[in-house]
Simulated scan of single mutants.
Amino acid sequence: TLCFDLALDYRTATRVALAASETARPGSVKAAVGLFQALGKNVSVIDDIPGLIVARTVAMLVDFAADALGRCVAEAHDIDTAMRKGVNYPRGPLEWGGELGPEWVRRVLENLHAAYPTGRYAPSPLLVRRAAARRDLL
């Protein structure tokens, strides 16, 4: 099995991160690297860790934003604007969470929480409710 990490826009991404399972054949990894290089992408082969890198980071950011929204710390638009303007993110975390879907974010976090049961990756209550109701975060 080979996985590739989340990208904001796969068409315009200049780099792709690939993770191979322990049972992946070296020839398969080489072929996958070659495929992405033929598409003009730089390729990083990373360890197969839960959540990979970008997917884990984005899921956590979306969850923190959902938690702030659920606690009435700020309105959704204000959270996204603060992250775009203050941290220079290309999208606000709630906007990106809306594109990925709260079910996807919850699933990533629950899988991380199963792998690392410290509570760090436990999804926020608002995210869980919105995912169960199949409702967007915005």
Rank of each mutant, 00 (worst) to 15 (best):
L61V: 00
L52Q: 05
V105M: 07
T118C: 05
H77W: 09
D47H: 09
P90H: 08
Y89P: 03
L94I: 05
E110K: 03
V58C: 10
T57N: 08
I49D: 08
E95D: 13
G119I: 12
N42V: 05
W96R: 04
L127T: 01
Y121R: 00
L94H: 04
A65Y: 12
T81L: 14
L109N: 06
A68Q: 10
N88M: 14
M60V: 11
L126M: 07
R120V: 04
A66Y: 04
E103C: 02
L69E: 15
L69K: 10
K85I: 11
V58M: 15
A74R: 08
A114Q: 14
E110A: 05
L69N: 12
G92R: 00
A114M: 14
T81I: 08
E110T: 09
N42I: 01
L94F: 06
P123I: 12
N88D: 11
L52C: 10
A115R: 07
R71L: 07
S44G: 03
A65Q: 05
I46E: 14
R84M: 15
P93K: 08
V87Q: 08
A68W: 07
L61G: 00
K85D: 13
E95A: 13
S124L: 08
V62D: 07
M83L: 13
E95H: 04
Y116I: 15
Y89T: 02
V105P: 07
S44K: 12
A76C: 04
L69C: 06
G98N: 15
P123E: 13
W104C: 03
A68N: 15
A68S: 13
G51V: 10
V105Q: 08
E110C: 03
Y121I: 00
D47C: 03
G70T: 04
R71I: 07
